[in-house]
Design a binder for these strands. Structure first.
Lengths: 112, 112
DNA sequence: TTACTACATGTAGCTTTACTACCTATGCGC
DNA sequence: GCGCATAGGTAGTAAAGCTACATGTAGTAA
């Protein structure tokens, strides 16, 4: 995966990871790793600043929670964040359709 | 379309635009615009530096041509560029599959 | 003949954003 | 004790597309 490929697409995936319910940062990280089949094994230096950015933008709301001596910062979608997620999903469909069209029909045949 | 969405995906599309044959920069720009249904109406400040980058990297070969008082810089895929195009197409399929999976199946139904 | 548009190429500086590298801390198994 | 998974975080860097600007030709509309 190219170094820059994620640019501008991470926020949508983070919001989507919170769509089923609140999660803390580390769990979001895991969700991206597992949900992408291991392709998005993102470093903490990517995840935490990104979540903080979404919080500042008002798309998620964060609360501290303590469980078994472990402090966790739990993130939850705000109504604004939910609207943003919708917008991101739509933008992704537009974007991916356009790129797929431009990259051309040169697919490797499934079964020769 | 988000400001950063294109990052890392432009090179593949530029190379793909040269797959049918040599084109000059302005024609490549047009090809992206038309081929994306108007979604990628990229400024010259994006296209020309990107083509130059691909040239420096050895993926395209450029020659000047004069036609009707118009100087054009015509770009052509090199063998290395063709391999790169293959790699970009493969990377895009991987990437888009992963993002689509993570954004979830929350598609709006076609006919309610 | 003036002005505007499409064609055609290019650069300097800005901004955003993910990544690298580093730090702190707890709980558990060996 | 030691290492690993879990859990959170920051400072600084690099990449790459965008904005705004500059240059010039050809054709057309006023």
């Amino acid at each position: 995966m190219s170094a820059q490929a994620l640019k501008g697409h991470l926020d949508g995936m983070l919001l989507a990871a919170l769509d089923d319910g609140p999660r803390h940062g580390y769990a979001v990280m895991e969700a991206l790793r597992v949900g992408s089949g291991g392709r998005f094994d993102l470093p903490t230096g990517t995840i935490y600043p990104a979540l903080r950015r979404l919080e500042r933008a008002g798309f998620v709301h964060a609360t501290w929670s303590e469980e078994g001596g472990r402090r966790r910062r739990v993130y939850e979608l705000t109504p604004s964040g939910r609207r943003m997620l919708d917008a991101e999903r739509h933008a992704w469909r537009e974007f991916s359709a356009a790129v797929t069209a431009l990259l051309g029909p040169h697919q490797r045949p499934v079964t020769p």
